[in-house]
């Protein structure tokens, strides 16, 4: 029995091991029957998971944008609100020549700080 070439050996190995006696197909079939049946769950369960993440991201983004907008415009509207209530800002007490009228302005400010109902 002469030695084969190295190139022939892989084919010989395959044939040599395929020729080994095989298992009892019925026993293998019984093993297959006992294996658990898999439901198509991977994709169906992952998709809602992804959707949830996207929804959370959209909510977070819109929340951030709303907060930013409110901070930006809300701070501009605050002095206007004060004027609507009839209150003057401290700059309003400064006269046109640049000097503040301290005596009369302080009395008037005292009155204006008190609730509106008492002014009437």
């Amino acid at each position: 029995m002469t030695a084969p070439d190295s190139a022939d050996l892989p084919g010989l190995i395959r044939n040599a091991f395929d020729a080994l006696p095989g298992p009892d197909e019925e026993r293998l079939g019984a093993i297959r029957q006992r294996l658990p049946v898999r439901q198509p769950q991977r994709l169906t369960s992952r998709q809602p998971h992804r959707l949830k993440w996207i929804l959370w991201l959209v909510l977070l983004g819109s929340g951030t944008v709303t907060a930013g907008w409110w901070l930006g415009t809300g701070s501009q509207q605050a002095p206007e609100k004060m004027n609507h209530l009839g209150q003057s800002s401290p700059e309003a007490n400064v006269q046109s020549d640049g000097k503040a009228d301290t005596s009369s302005a302080s009395d008037e400010n005292e009155r204006r700080r008190s609730p509106i109902i008492y002014q009437r």
């Binding site: 040599a16 020729a19 006696p21």
Partner: peptide, 18 residues
């Protein structure tokens, strides 16, 4: 385990290789 013997009519070189 399984012995290296296969079927009785198997080529000798396969048995030798195993």
């Amino acid at each position: 385990g399984m012995s290296v013997q296969g079927h009785h009519d198997e080529p000798a070189e396969q048995i030798h290789l195993r």
